[in-house]
Design a protein around this nucleic acid. Structure first.
Length: 275
DNA sequence: GCGCAGGTAATCT
DNA sequence: AGATTACCTGCG
């Protein structure tokens, strides 16, 4: 057990922030997270403190970095104009959301799957894939599959994971990585623009998915994925144009705040407009 | 039964 | 360049 205390860490919000699909609240205040071959339970014990089920050593060596705890998120509030009511509310509402340092292959496959799918549906497909060919970690839990394991699946097995037309995208991406045609780790050395283009060279990876993979799998916190939610918010509150350059270098963090808050109020929908 | 969901690629103008 | 459309599948 290890206790983590921080005003800038909110486990529930992070689990629900849409950046991660294998982080669930299993009972009130108790969260389970699978990352790589590691599993951790996190229990909320007060407003700003959590009990991690791992020991201090594992926390220090892995989870501390995974939760990006060396970054001071209070700094990202700078440059927000006082009169930007929406963003000020978003930042306040999303306090404690952080960008996790997730595995790039897992992010690639997960966000390929995510297209035109709801979050529960994305999670369901990922769990099916993991059960099918991920490493067994005990207690009915499975790691996210390796590229090799995924690429060795039979078509029928893949079909059983409710991927639909993304089937082929997942399979070819996994095969390219497994064969070494693509080296996702090497892409870490690419600049943001080159990385995005490299990702988009894969079938099924467009601008939105590429930006998500860059942001969540490569920690390119200047990436600003625009999905239908973000677009609705930009249209509704920013007259169709968001001043992204104002947040140069960390626009992705701002995007997460906007996304998390915007979804909570169903921004841009009839409900938010009291229609 | 029908429309839509955290997009992409192909095929138009 | 920008607009339009088909696409798997599950859910209301």
């Amino acid at each position: 057990m290890y206790i983590v205390e921080s005003d800038e860490l909110d486990i529930k919000k992070i689990a629900e922030s849409g950046q991660i699909f294998r982080f669930n609240e299993v009972e009130k205040g108790l969260f389970n997270l699978i990352a790589g071959e590691k599993i951790v339970d996190i229990k909320q014990i007060s407003d700003n403190s959590y009990e991690f089920s791992c020991d201090k050593k594992e926390y220090d060596e892995f989870w501390h970095g995974y939760f990006d705890m060396n970054t001071d998120y209070s700094l990202f509030k700078k440059n927000i104009p006082e009169d930007d009511k929406f963003l000020n509310e978003a930042v306040s509402y999303a306090k404690g959301v952080r960008i996790l340092k997730q595995d790039e292959f897992e992010m690639l496959i997960s966000f390929i799957i995510s297209q035109r799918k709801s979050i529960p549906s994305i999670k369901s497909s990922i769990e099916k894939l993991s059960k099918l060919c991920g490493k067994h970690l005990g207690e009915g839990k499975y790691a996210f599959p390796s590229a090799e394991a995924l690429s060795n699946l039979e078509i029928e097995e893949l079909n059983a994971c409710s991927l639909g037309y993304r089937n082929e995208y997942v399979s070819t991406a996994a095969k390219k990585v497994a064969k070494g045609e693509i080296n996702l780790k090497e892409w870490r050395s690419l600049g943001d623009e080159d990385l995005r283009n490299a990702l988009m060279s894969m079938r099924g990876v467009g601008i939105k998915v590429a930006n998500c993979v860059a942001l969540f799998g490569y920690y390119r916190i200047n990436s600003f994925p625009i999905d239908v939610w973000i677009q609705r918010i930009i249209d509704t509150y920013y007259d169709g144009c968001f001043p992204i350059e104002r947040y140069e270098g960390y626009a992705g963090i701002i995007q997460q705040y906007i996304f998390f808050y915007g979804r909570s109020i169903k921004a841009g929908t009839d409900k938010a407009l009291n229609k």
